[in-house]
């Protein structure tokens, strides 16, 4: 399969990339790592007139400490993110979940920013960024814009990015001590997409749960926070029974669809089971 024809632009700075997008209009598509876009191009499900390749915009690959948060550049590859000491120290959930994305060859090319902008409901990283209250930074000719993760993922393959906006990266607040994290995914085969995934973090103090974050992958057209689960655990002692009871709320407020991998009801069941598992593992009990 051969992609349709397109013009190819290869900016080397953020400024050039933003200008290229502004000049190319709605017929342009940004090429990050290409591991989702290339299959779409080959199948001609995407037929952009212009492809803006960010491969040579080195500044977009930076991961840096910004004091109370860590900034991960949009073009940081999955491979880079998994190994990065700042990510491992301050956002270990991202490193752990990213290591479950696809396979090593795909992780060498695929990028965090690309998978967030692609906004695939079965993608693992949107739920992770949502659980961590990440803030996405976009840039257009009109200047920068900050978009909280809760507002970024709008619908199936649809983010809040405007056509002429470039995703620069995501800021992840440092959460401090006492936290345990886990990403639990259920999929048919090693490299398959998640049928359901659960990203969670639990902070305990003196045995009781002080704060909890739970976000779900593929339980609707966009990742969703399981707020009822989070609320049910506040102040509770972290036991398997407490997690199981709270996880019974996991499917509330979700809107999964049925497909050949499972019905909506099956996904709701998985959300409850996997949430209990994820919380238990995160809390280390």
């Amino acid at each position: 399969m051969i992609p349709g024809s397109f013009d190819y632009l290869r900016p080397t700075t953020i400024g050039e990339a933003v200008s290229a997008l502004a000049e190319s209009g709605e017929d342009a598509k940004v090429l990050a790592g290409g591991q989702s876009l290339m299959p779409l191009l080959r199948l001609r499900l995407a037929l952009p007139e212009v492809l803006v390749d960010l491969d040579h915009v080195a500044e977009l690959r930076e991961i840096r400490d910004t004091g109370d948060s860590v900034f991960i550049g949009a073009m940081a590859t999955h491979h880079q993110v998994i190994k990065d000491p700042l990510v491992r120290a301050h956002a270990p959930l991202i490193a752990q979940a990213t290591a479950t994305v696809a396979d090593p060859a795909v992780r060498h090319r695929g990028t965090l920013g690309g998978s967030l902008a692609h906004a695939d409901p079965a993608g693992d990283l949107p739920a992770v960024i949502l659980a961590l209250d990440g803030v996405l930074i976009a840039q257009s000719a009109h200047g920068p814009r900050e978009i909280p993760a809760a507002d970024f993922f709008e619908d199936y393959l649809t983010s809040a990015l405007e056509p002429a906006e470039l995703l620069l990266g995501v800021r992840i607040p440092k959460l401090g001590t006492g936290w345990g994290f886990h990403y639990e995914k259920f999929h048919r085969t090693a490299q398959a997409w998640a049928i359901v995934g659960v990203a969670c973090g639990v902070r305990r103090a003196n045995g009781a749960i002080e704060e909890c974050r739970v976000a779900l992958t593929n339980m609707g057209p966009a990742p969703v926070r399981a707020h009822e689960v989070e609320r049910a655990l506040l102040g509770r002692v972290a036991t398997q029974n407490a997690f199981k009871a709270a996880a019974a709320h996991a499917a509330e407020g979700t809107a999964p669809t049925g497909d050949l991998h499972g019905s909506a009801e099956y996904r709701e069941h998985l959300a409850r089971v996997l949430t209990a598992r994820a919380l238990t593992t995160a809390a280390g009990i």
Partner: peptide
């Protein structure tokens, strides 16, 4: 580093 050459453009 391993890559799937069906998912990389020659120009890349």
């Amino acid at each position: 580093m391993s890559v799937k050459s069906c998912s990389v453009l020659a120009v890349q």
